[in-house]
C-alpha cells in the first residue's frame, strides 16, 4: 500500500540549516495527528541523520513514507562512506572535526541515537561511493 511521501534535500554546506527536514516533518506529522512520542522519535532520529549528512557527506536526500502502521525514512548521500559500520555504531566513536565538536556535535552519539529511537535501522555504505541509512518506526 502506498502512503504519504515526502522528499527533503539536505544542504551540506550550511550547518545552521541542519534540522530543517526534521522540523518540517515534525509539523506535518503533528498536523496528521501522529502521537507525540512517535513524532519525537522520528524527529530525533531524522535530525541526527541530517547532522551526519552535513558533517560527513556534504548533504544528500531524505525520502520519507508514512503508511497507517509505519514511517520509513531513507537517508542517502554520496559522501566518503563508512569504512567500518560496526565501529561507527559504537557510542563515543567519531571522526568529526573540532569545528563540529565546538558546535555541540561529533560526540559519537549520532548513530546510536538513531538506532535507539527507531524500531529498525540498517546502513549500507561503500567507501568513496556513499551511504544509505534505512530507518523504520512503527506507529501502532
Amino acid at each position: 500500500m502506498s502512503g504519504l511521501k515526502w522528499t527533503f534535500e539536505v544542504d551540506g554546506n550550511d550547518f545552521t540549516r541542519a534540522g530543517e527536514a526534521s522540523s518540517s516533518l515534525k509539523k506535518k506529522l503533528r498536523a496528521l495527528g501522529v502521537s507525540p512520542d512517535i513524532i519525537r522519535r522520528v524527529s530525533i532520529a531524522l535530525y541526527e541523520g541530517e547532522i551526519n549528512m552535513v558533517i560527513h557527506a556534504n548533504g544528500g536526500t531524505i525520502d520519507v513514507e508514512m503508511t497507517p502502521d509505519r514511517i520509513d525514512m531513507v537517508l542517502k548521500d554520496t559522501g566518503k562512506g563508512i569504512p567500518d559500520i560496526e565501529q561507527a555504531m559504537q557510542a563515543g566513536w567519531s571522526t568529526a572535526a573540532d569545528e563540529v565538536r565546538s558546535l555541540g556535535f561529533g560526540a559519537g552519539m549520532g548513530l546510536p541515537n538513531m538506532k535507539k529511537n527507531t524500531d529498525e535501522m540498517r546502513i549500507e555504505s561503500t567507501v568513496g561511493v556513499g551511504t544509505t541509512v534505512y530507518m523504520t518506526i512503527y506507529i501502532s
Binding site: G19, S23, G104, M109
Partner: peptide, 30 residues
C-alpha cells in the same frame, strides 16, 4: 553535547546549557 541532550532530555524539561548556537534551538524544538 547536543546529541546527548537530544537523546536524553525529556519533554517539558528545562534545558540548561552554555552551548549558544542555532543548533541549540533546533535541539530544544525537537
Amino acid at each position: 553535547l547536543l546529541s546527548m541532550v537530544m537523546g536524553r532530555a525529556k519533554e517539558n524539561d528545562a534545558f540548561v546549557t552554555v552551548m549558544a548556537n542555532v543548533n541549540t534551538i533546533a535541539v530544544a524544538v525537537l
